[in-house]
């Protein structure tokens, strides 16, 4: 019975993946559009930089919400977009870095070296991005097979990456913690759902929402 319920049609999966792909592009297109129309204020580079940073964190949090959501609902559709959303987080983070190098540093490479050594928020940001790159590179089937048993522990480092990202964000705050706190609350909630006693309770719930 349950097997029939949770069976996802391959054509549905394909469509669902393309839908998620399209949705993930929307914020990017929106911000670039605003910049092109001169609606991004007097410092469009910084506008893009900040928004892309938020975008990367959003995608990361969404990625981490998929496993609890699967446990909660039993719907496999959440699982089939996990890698894609993780890769979107990487894509937004790379564009965030690109904006920093192009628009904030103005391509002064010597300055980049200096910032990488001297500024703690840049250091943790760079570490987090490096982590995302490693996870991105090892997210394909070939790498999964090559890594075998080591793949799962490697990809659990996403929790460390999340904490580095939150630290990176915290260290650019000057005097207003409200936005950071909202993200931190969500991040903490998602971490809490990984706590085994709670995680077990989630999956024991009746899976009545599965097919409706």
């Amino acid at each position: 019975m349950s097997e029939i319920r949770f069976y996802l049609n391959p054509r549905f999966i394909l469509g669902w993946r393309w839908l998620v792909f399209g949705l993930a592009l929307v914020p990017w297109a929106l911000w670039v559009g605003q910049v092109m129309q001169g609606q991004a204020g007097p410092e469009p580079g910084r506008y893009l930089l900040l928004n892309l940073g938020h975008g990367a964190l959003w995608c990361l949090l969404l990625t981490l919400s998929l496993t609890p959501l699967t446990r909660l609902t039993g719907w496999k559709g959440f699982r089939v977009i996990r890698r894609q959303l993780g890769l979107w987080s990487l894509a937004y983070a790379l564009m965030h870095l690109l904006c920093y190098v192009l628009f904030i540093l103005g391509l002064e490479w010597s300055q980049l070296g200096k910032e990488l050594v001297e500024r703690p928020y840049i250091i943790v940001g760079a570490l987090a991005l490096t982590g995302l790159v490693v996870l991105g590179i090892t997210s394909n089937r070939w790498a999964m097979q090559r890594l075998g048993r080591r793949w799962k522990p490697l990809h659990k480092s996403v929790y460390v990456i999340l904490m580095l990202v939150m630290l990176h964000f915290l260290w650019v705050v000057r005097a207003d913690l409200s936005t950071w706190s909202a993200y931190a609350l969500v991040a903490a909630g998602l971490m809490l759902l990984r706590w085994p006693p709670l995680a077990r309770r989630l999956s024991r719930r009746p899976r009545r929402m599965a097919s409706s």
């Binding site: 410092e43 580079g45 893009l48 192009l102 628009f103 703690p120």
Partner: peptide, 23 residues
């Protein structure tokens, strides 16, 4: 004298645009 979190040697004169950061 730098701010501990960023350099004060240069500044971005605003308004700027994407491909002339006006540093």
């Amino acid at each position: 004298v730098d701010h501990p979190r960023w350099s004060q040697a240069r500044e971005r004169r605003l308004p700027n645009s994407l491909f002339s950061p006006n540093r």
